[in-house]
Computed example of a mutant assay.
Amino acid sequence: MFELRRLRLLHELALRGTISDVARALSYSPSTVSQQLALLEREAGVALLEPDGRRLRLTAQGRLLAAHAARAIELDEAARAELSASQHAPARVRIAVMSTAAEALAPAALGLLAERMPSLRLEMVEMAPEEGLFELQAHAFDLVVAEQYPGHTRELRPGIERTLLGHDPVRLVVPLDSPATGLADLRDAAWAMEPEGAAVRRWAVQQCRAAGFEPDVRYEATDLTAHARLAATGHAAAMLPDLIWTGGRDAVRLLELPGSPVREIFAATRSSSRGGEAIEAVLTALRDALEAHRPR
Rank of each mutant, 00 (worst) to 15 (best):
L13H: 13
V22K: 04
Y28M: 13
S29I: 09
S31C: 02
V33D: 05
L37E: 09
A44I: 06
P51Y: 03
P51C: 09
G53F: 03
R55T: 15
T59C: 07
Q61P: 04
A67D: 14
A81E: 14
S84V: 03
Q87R: 13
V97A: 14
V97E: 10
M98Y: 13
A104Y: 03
A109Q: 11
G111F: 09
E115H: 14
M117P: 03
P118L: 09
E131I: 06
Q137H: 11
A138Q: 10
F141N: 01
D142T: 10
L143W: 12
A146Y: 11
Q148P: 01
G151Y: 01
G151H: 05
G159T: 07
E161M: 11
R162G: 06
D168H: 01
D177Q: 13
P179Y: 12
A184W: 00
A184V: 15
L186Q: 00
P195K: 04
E196R: 11
A198L: 13
V205S: 05
A210V: 04
E214W: 10
V217M: 11
E220A: 15
A221C: 09
T225L: 13
A238E: 05
A238K: 02
P241I: 01
L243W: 02
D250Y: 00
S260M: 03
E264I: 00
I265L: 13
R274Y: 08
I279L: 15
A281I: 10
L286Y: 02
A292Y: 10
R296F: 10
